[in-house]
Design a protein around this nucleic acid. Structure first.
Length: 704
RNA sequence: GCACCCUUAGCUCAGUUGGUAGAGCAGCGCAUUUACACUGCGAAGGUCGGGGGUUCGAGCCCCUCAGGGUGCACCA
């Protein structure tokens, strides 16, 4: 017996060596796997953002996916787990901008587009290397020969190709429309990138002039200089007589022209039952303006959230202007009352900036237009595979959330005013426009904007497999089997992948969506650097072993439910790893060499466990499978079977018992391998096996 | 406002198709020439949020109430 078994299990000494052994075997690559393996099993890794380091959520994702992949590999599937990273456009740009500001007190504009992009790329490359090292440390059996990046040459081609196809199909269009403008990030963002924060606010009631017949209630008095109408409910008896009338006024130095319109969307019971309509700075007002053919180009706030209007307000910050308007109203005797009202403020997810709705010329994806040759809209194409069960979401109650989101979906704004990302593949020359690839000849100017990062992420399952080229990989491995990701990006990503794949390939991107919960600290707080409660997966794995970290993340972690993780839990599974180590020590010392037919109740019991665990894995209950294995190995195999074996090993039945113990250990190693790959492989190798445990045969066969 | 989830041991959470509840940590008693002290054995601890119903049988299914959370919408 190897003397290392006389000491406690030492993951630090083991893991690097084992991972290297796996990598050198070539078996991470499905092309090298031995045997028939006609059936593929594919997971494309959700690409971590190249914004720095991995966190516990990534570790969880890696643990779960590696468990699924290792299980299927042992069951004889041609398994592909494809790695990659995400350029994460706005997120990465924001990190580098902050860094440059802090270190050199410069903005991206000081560096220029080209110079700035070089800096971002250098940062991204560094992050990439850190991340790959972290992924390997977790034991992830990814096929590194197929690694992809959302912004590399092949993925860029895929992006340009889809863009052109959607443009030609009339699904991508350019339009001037009210958008979510982030004054802090100086870019538009999509509806999904908004976080609503409940804040106390004030609802002011006032009149435009002394003789204006209708009082107005608003939380944003400063925008009232941009009003073009007052909307009331058509049946509101108080205001019926004024509908259709027009008024001129000077509001805080600015001339305004107000038309009274009737709109059934107005709630007569809220405020005064009359809305001052500001089409350029409010989504609902924009829609009212469209319905009543009101002017929509009256801009009074600019991209920096500053007023642009004749008179005293000009150049003031919107928040400052608000106070000035209120003061003016009071001085003029137009102010009626103010009430406290909590309301939701739209903020940008990445920068925290308060969203300022503004009309902007942007690129959009039309989700309500019929897709040529499909006879369905993109919305319907997103809805159908989930509704028909072609795509199964785990846990299934997320179906409802998904449907609800799609029903409320508006056109997707895909252009961003940032530099890092896929530049919009559109070129202009006077009135001419070219889409897809850069046209020949002089005088063409490319669109300045870049694409929403989720546009390229949406192609991930097939761009990684070589599309638009019809590669052998694409044919064999797509649609993929499982998408395993956090429930927080169900809309951002999962929905967009379904949209893109249905459009470009006419098929689904994956059959199963497994949504894990978010990892929180022991107190239930979200882990973050600023709170100082973030556990570094690498540090945890270094201290307790990657296997222990993985078990702690997997056991009891049900899909869709946020989980808490603490070092104590990881320590518990380190003890378990050591228990397994000592079981191996006992078996190696007491059960060498015997070759006897295995049977008896203990073996039957093991076979039943193997079947049970297999069923759990097939039905995506890794949290249960891991717990059952833990219980069996410690409290049945070690506590009972080994204890009972001690006298038997001194009896005439020793040979049979030795064979049983050996078989139970080997079987347990196999079942545990997907969860704790390092220690199981290490023990397996110490038992004198020539082949890797990673590609050994799974000890149970049940139908899927 | 609409929808969904959660409420189980002191704490944090599991509990697959309904068959009198389990992990981690904490904590109690015993054991140190034991495969393993990174330990073992044993005990204790739960009217499974309250109430009602279905069932031979409910932590699990249905209704209802209370508390906590999330998503979406509204937000003049």
């Amino acid at each position: 017996m190897d003397p290392k078994f006389l000491k406690p299990y030492n993951p630090a000494e083991t893991e690097g060596r084992i991972y290297k052994m796996w990598e050198e075997s070539g078996f991470f690559n499905p092309d090298n796997l031995l045997g028939e393996r006609s059936e593929p099993f594919t997971i494309i890794l959700p690409p971590p953002n190249v914004t720095g380091r991995l966190h516990m959520g990534h570790a969880l994702m890696l643990a779960l996916q590696d468990t699924f992949i290792r299980y299927k590999r042992m069951r004889g599937f041609k398994t592909l787990w494809l790695p990659g990273t995400d350029h994460a456009a706005i997120a990465t740009q924001a990190v580098v901008e902050k860094q440059i500001k802090k270190e050199e007190d410069k903005s991206r504009h000081d560096l220029g587009r080209e110079g700035f992009l070089k800096r971002v790329e250098a940062f991204a490359a560094e992050s990439h290397d850190t991340i790959v090292g972290q992924i390997k440390a977790m034991g992830a059996s990814l096929d590194w020969s197929r690694e992809a990046f959302t912004l590399d040459e092949k993925r860029s081609l895929a992006v340009r190709t889809v863009f052109k196809q959607m443009y030609d199909a009339g699904l991508i269009y350019r339009a001037n429309r009210i958008v979510n403008w982030d004054p802090k990030g100086q870019t538009t963002i999509s509806d999904d990138e908004i976080v609503y924060e409940e804040r106390p606010g004030t609802l002011y009631t006032f009149r435009y002039t002394k003789d204006f017949p209708i009082p107005i209630a608003t939380t944003r008095p400063e925008t009232k200089v941009g009003d073009v109408a007052v909307a009331v409910h058509p049946d509101d008896a108080r205001y019926k007589e004024f509908i259709g009338k027009e008024y001129d006024a000077v509001f805080c130095d600015a001339p305004i022209h107000i038309k009274v319109v009737a709109d059934k969307e107005i709630d007569p019971t809220f405020g005064t039952g009359a809305v001052g309509v500001t089409p350029a700075h409010s989504f609902t007002d924009w829609e009212i303006a469209e319905r009543h053919d009101l002017p929509k180009d009256k801009l009074v706030i600019n991209e920096f959230a500053k007023m642009m209007v004749p008179g005293r307000l000009n150049g003031k910050k919107a928040t400052e202007a608000r106070e000035m308007v209120v003061e003016w109203l009071k001085n003029e005797g137009l102010f009626e009352k103010e009430e406290v009202a909590t309301h939701n403020i739209a903020t940008a997810e990445r920068t925290g900036g308060v969203i300022e709705p503004l009309p902007k010329l942007q690129w959009w994806v039309d989700v309500d237009k019929e897709v040529p040759d499909r006879g369905k809209t993109l919305k319907e194409l997103m809805l159908e595979p989930v509704r028909d069960g072609k795509i199964k979401i785990i846990p299934d109650y997320f179906d409802k959330t998904y449907f609800h989101w799609i029903e409320n979906l508006r056109d997707w704004c895909i252009s961003r005013q940032i530099w890092y990302g896929h530049r919009i593949p559109v070129w202009y020359k006077g009135e001419e426009i070219a889409v897809g690839e850069a046209p020949e000849g002089d005088g063409w100017v490319q669109d300045e904007d870049t694409l929403d990062t989720w546009f390229s992420s949406g192609l991930w399952t097939f761009s990684t497999l070589g599309w638009p080229e019809q590669t052998a990989d694409l044919k064999l491995f797509h649609p993929t089997d499982v998408l395993e990701t956090g429930h927080d990006i169900l809309f951002f990503w999962v929905a967009r992948m379904i949209l893109m794949t249905e459009f470009a390939l006419g098929t689904i991107p994956f059959k199963t969506v497994y949504l894990h919960g978010l990892v929180r600290d022991a107190k239930g707080q979200k882990m973050s650097k600023s709170l100082g409660n973030a556990l570094d997966p690498l540090e945890i794995a270094g201290k307790y072993g990657a296997d222990a970290a993985r078990m702690a993340l997997v056991v009891g972690n049900t899909p869709g439910t946020d989980m808490r993780i603490s070092e104590d839990k990881v320590r518990g599974y380190k003890h378990f790893a050591n228990k397994l180590w000592n079981i191996a020590r006992f078996v190696l010392a007491n059960a060498g060499g015997a070759r006897v037919e295995i049977s008896g109740p203990e073996w039957k019991e093991f076979e039943a466990l193997a079947k049970d665990v297999t069923k759990d894995l097939e039905e995506y209950r890794p949290y249960l499978a891991a717990e059952k294995l833990y219980h069996y190995v410690w409290h049945r195999f070690a506590d009972q079977i080994i204890e009972e074996s001690k006298p038997v090993l001194k009896s005439p039945d020793a040979a049979t018992r030795q064979a049983l113990l050996r078989a139970l250990l080997e079987g347990s190693l196999k079942l545990l391998h997907p969860f704790m790959p390092f220690i199981t492989e290490e023990i397996w190798q110490s038992m004198g096996h020539e082949q890797l445990l990673m590609v050994s045969e799974w000890p149970a066969r049940i139908k899927q």
